[in-house]
Simulated assay, not measured.
Amino acid sequence: MTTVAYQGEPGSNSATATQILYPGSSELPCTSFDQALDAVTLGTADLAVIPVDNSAAGRVADVHHLLPESGLFVIAEYFLAIRFDLMGVPGASPAEVECVRSHVHALSQCRKVLREGGWRTLVTDDTAGAAREVAELGDPRHAALAPPAAALRYGLEVLRAGVEDDPDNTTRFVVLSREASVPPVTDEPMMTSLFFAVRNIPSALYKALGGFASSAVNLTKIESYQMGAGLNASCFYVEIEDHPDEPRVALALQELRFFSSEVRVLGVYPAHPHRLRERVG
């Protein structure tokens, strides 16, 4: 049986994504993203499902920093529609609520209902954990913003359903594995994740990325960060459309390598249908 690690508790959005992607798998809830990645690296889990971007809140996990150091590979992506319910102990009403608990990203994605209620907020490690805490407290003055599955799991009552600000709220997850799984070049849309460190010379980034522009390769994501202390040249996590063996992508990567001190392909995987729908829309 496949064991899949994720950050959060049962009933969280990460748990839901895991169940959709790998039904019947053995779940390994973790307290942090680092712990989830370490579980795969050490062999405790076969895969990790990690949220990386949210359409409303932006970047979720520092995967651009964690992934290159972990030695893991991206083998898939998945877009999950996000829904949050305001939930409390059975018999509670919104009028009784004084404090709402949830993960910081969930709170930021439900600002309208929080503003309308005038409630105090309390940040928790994850959304499902907030629901568990409210159930343990048994106090109608405390409520949680959590996915619908959390209410069922912890015996809470939905006080208001679907309170996310954006009805199209979506989180993108990536699946991480110890082994790279590079599919062959086909007509199917593909994505490639890359890590590179530019040479410490003037205009290095401009020149390194120039090949993508001249080869008409679409860059969908770029994140920069420093490796260690000091004034070392910046490192970058990049996602591009298409397969690295496709001729125009191979040409762009050749130019990237010329102006970089290190280039690593961190994953080649099918583009999720949601990405294609967004492009058409």
Rank of each mutant, 00 (worst) to 15 (best):
E179V: 00
P183K: 01
I222L: 15
P189Y: 03
N218M: 07
G228V: 10
E241W: 02
A180D: 02
I222K: 13
S177K: 00
S203Y: 11
E239N: 11
L194V: 02
I240S: 00
V185C: 08
F196T: 06
H243C: 02
P189Q: 12
F196G: 05
N200K: 13
D187W: 08
Y237I: 04
F195I: 01
L194A: 03
I222F: 12
S215P: 01
A208H: 10
G230C: 06
P184V: 07
I240L: 04
H243S: 03
M190I: 00
G230V: 05
Q226P: 12
S234A: 15
G228N: 12
R199F: 09
E223K: 14
A197N: 09
F236S: 01
I201K: 15
P202F: 14
A204L: 12
G210N: 11
A208S: 12
Y225Q: 07
E239P: 03
L194P: 01
Q226I: 13
A208C: 10
A233T: 04
F195K: 04
F236N: 00
L219M: 14
F196S: 05
F236P: 02
P202M: 15
F212M: 02
V175I: 14
A208W: 07
N200W: 06
M227N: 03
D245P: 00
Y206H: 15
F196R: 05
N200M: 09
L209R: 06
E188T: 14
S181Q: 01
S224E: 15
D242S: 15
G210Q: 07
R199Y: 06
A180M: 02
D245Q: 06
K207A: 11
E241Q: 06
D242L: 04
E188D: 13
S234K: 11
N218T: 10
V175K: 07
A197P: 05
T192E: 01
A180S: 13
E241G: 03
F236D: 00
S203G: 08
F236R: 01
F195N: 03
A208Y: 09
C235A: 12
P189W: 01
G228W: 06
P202W: 13
V185I: 11
S215R: 11
